[in-house]
Design a protein around this nucleic acid. Structure first.
Lengths: 174, 174
DNA sequence: CTTGACTCTATACGCGACTACAGGGTTTAT
DNA sequence: ATAAACCCTGTAGTCGCGTATAGAGTCAAG
């Protein structure tokens, strides 16, 4: 829905095609969507995009619809859907099945996950804050590695569940 | 599994301090610490544990200190430290360097990360809740994949910013 | 003595969402 | 005409934190 504008919109890309953009190459799609070229091919392999037309030399030729599809994918990702779930939704939609029931179920599940995760995070945050404060006053005891960590009490000593922090961000690549 | 008799003094013990258990085998350590056998060997490989004594037949023989070390590791993990950071801290401590400054810096960094992440999560949660609600009243529109997702507005359309789990920053084609 | 639980090493796999490379072909700009 | 910039396929690697398997040796009990 939304934008069903088919005409030759002036797109800011560096190339000015005369004809309406029925055939963007992968690099243009990447630039306009913000999704990397490799990621686009990866999405295609993963069944998120479907196979685009090809030029006689084999280049992928996308039409504008792909941008909406990519916007959909990005939004769904933003909302916490995995690519797998997104693929499911899209595939249902293409089979004519309303994805909404599926999606609703998925959203509910995700909702519960998120709120639990937020709780953990907040606990985590409190724990860290307390640790820092105590630290500033206590310093370290002689016999141990780091008194405050060692003195920290855990509500949940399960070794797997305590890991809250998601993947670490690389510090490079500003 | 489970109840194993240790030389003279121990039933699966919690209070077996008759003689200091200078030789726990890996399974016992696993049981008492809650850390899996494979994980213990993995920690050793990763430099978190140091090499324990060995029996003539090559079995690892741990003394009680390892339990404290493992408790330290688990707590630090619980607090959001990566194994890498924990290794650093321990290594500093063993070199005689006070790890506390390092740790403090790490904790502060982590603190900021966590609170930002919590904010994202809450935003995310709100977004999802709103989506579900609208869904229940609106239903689906005919032409699209899933109207509500497509209608979702993203505050920050950057592909990296909305993610639940952070990922590496993608470099744009310059 | 045999069984079965335990341990050893080394290697491979799993997750999620890409990213990087190798080794080509094609298009575009000078 | 030539080089730069793009595109192709296919495979492998990354990140963190382990888990799983294979194939072998060891230990305590029945």
């Amino acid at each position: 829905m939304a934008i069903r504008n088919n005409t030759a919109t002036t797109i800011v890309g560096r190339t000015n095609r005369l004809s309406p953009r029925t055939s963007m190459k992968i690099g243009e799609v990447s630039q306009e969507s913000g999704v990397g070229v490799e990621a686009l091919r990866f999405y295609e392999r993963s069944g998120l995009l479907g196979r685009p037309a090809r030029s006689r030399s084999g280049y992928r030729l996308y039409d504008e619809a792909v941008l909406e599809r990519l916007a959909f994918i990005r939004k769904a990702q933003f909302l916490g859907f995995s690519l797998d779930e997104i693929r499911h939704i899209i595939s249902d939609a293409e089979k004519g099945v309303s994805p909404c029931d599926d999606v609703r179920a998925i959203v509910r599940r995700r909702l519960a996950e998120v709120s639990e995760r937020v709780k953990e995070m907040q606990r985590h945050h409190r724990e860290l804050t307390r640790t820092l404060e105590e630290w500033d006053e206590v310093g370290r005891a002689p016999g141990n590695i780091c008194g405050l960590i060692e003195g920290t009490e855990m509500q949940n000593p399960s070794p797997t569940s305590g890991r809250v922090t998601p993947k670490k961000q690389r510090k490079k690549t500003a």
